[in-house]
Amino acid sequence: MISRDGIAGLVCLVASLGLLALTRGMPKPALVPIGPAFYPRILFVVTAVLSLALVVTDLARRRRPAVPPVRYRLVLLAFVIFGAYVFLLPWLGYRVATFLFVAGLQTALEWPRLRWARGLSVALATTLVTYYVFEVYLSVLLPRGRLTGF
C-alpha cells in the first residue's frame, strides 16, 4: 500500500525526470565553461534520487499515521474565488475586481449566516483604502481594467 508520502515521492520523481528530459538541446554558449543545462541536470538527478528514496521508504514502512479528516469545501471555494479574482483583475481593474473579491469571499466564508452591511462596508473600505494609500500616497499604480478602463 502506498500512502501520501509515496504519492508525493512519485509525483516528484515523474516531475524531475520530465524536467530532465526538457534540458536536452540547450545551446552551449561561448565564454562559459559549463552550459546552462549543467546545473539543472545535477539538480534533477538529485531530486529524482531523493523522490525514489521517499517512495521506497514509504513502501517499506508498516505503521502509518492516521490522517484526520479535513473539510476541503471552503479551501476549494477560496481557491476558486481567488483564481477568479486574479483572472479578472486585468480585465475589470483593481478597484472593481477587489470590491467584488472581498465581498464574494466573505459571502462564501460566512454562508449561510450572512452579514450584508458588514460585508459590503469591509469590501468598500478595503478597496478604497488600499487604492488611495497605494496610488495616491505611495504612488504605486495599480492595474487598470482593460474592459472598464478604470
Partner: peptide, 30 residues
C-alpha cells in the same frame, strides 16, 4: 518531519529558480 522530505523540499526550491532565463547568459530554460 522526515529528513528526506526536508532535502526534497530544498531541492524543489532550487528547481523553482532554475526555470526561466539562466543567470549567466539568459538562455531560456524549461
Amino acid at each position: 518531519a522526515s529528513l528526506l522530505k526536508g532535502l526534497l523540499s530544498g531541492a524543489i526550491g532550487l528547481i523553482v529558480t532554475v526555470i526561466g532565463s539562466d543567470p549567466i547568459m539568459a538562455v531560456p530554460r524549461l
